[in-house]
C-alpha cells in the first residue's frame, strides 16, 4: 500500500491488546511519551473474545488517572480496526499525532527536561 504515516510514534507490538495493562500506559507517560493509543481488533472480533474490551477498560482507567494528575486523559485513546484496514490505521495515526501536536508536549516530558537541565547546571 505504501501509505504515509507519521514517523514520530513508536509501534509496540502485543500478542493481543488484552495484554496491555494500566501500568504499561502509565510507564510510557512517566518516561516522557506525549500520547499513546492502542489499536485493537474490531469489537466482537477478538480471537480471545474479550481482549479488546479489556484493553478499552484499561485505556479508560489510564485516562482517568492521567486527568487526575494533570497530564490529561485525552492523550490516550483506543481505536479498533481489522487487520485489513491499512488506510484506516494510517488515518488514525495521523489523527492521533495531530491531536497530540495540538495538545503540546506532556507536562511530564517538560518536567523531565527541566530536571535534566537543572542537573546539568549543577
Amino acid at each position: 500500500m505504501r501509505l504515509k504515516i507519521p514517523t514520530n510514534f513508536r509501534i509496540i507490538r502485543l500478542p493481543c491488546t488484552g495484554k496491555i495493562d494500566i501500568i504499561h500506559i502509565l510507564r510510557a507517560f512517566e518516561k516522557g511519551a506525549d500520547g499513546l493509543y492502542v489499536v485493537g481488533c474490531m469489537e466482537g472480533d477478538c480471537h480471545f473474545n474479550e481482549g479488546n474490551f479489556r484493553a478499552r477498560k484499561r485505556v479508560e482507567q489510564a485516562a482517568r488517572v492521567l486527568d487526575l494528575i494533570g497530564v490529561g486523559g485525552e492523550r490516550v485513546k483506543m481505536y479498533n480496526l481489522s487487520s485489513g484496514e491499512g488506510p484506516l490505521f494510517a488515518q488514525y495515526s495521523i489523527e492521533m499525532v495531530n491531536k497530540i501536536k495540538e495538545l503540546g508536549p506532556s507536562p511530564i516530558r517538560l518536567a523531565r527536561q527541566r530536571m535534566s537541565k537543572k542537573a546539568d547546571a549543577a
Binding site: 501500568i23 502509565l26 510507564r27 488517572v65 494528575i69 497530564v71 511530564i108 518536567a111 523531565r112
Partner: peptide, 12 residues
C-alpha cells in the same frame, strides 16, 4: 501503579 502516578504527579 500508585508509585508511577505519584511520581508523575509530583514531577508535574
Amino acid at each position: 501503579v500508585l508509585a508511577s502516578v505519584l511520581r508523575m504527579y509530583f514531577m508535574a
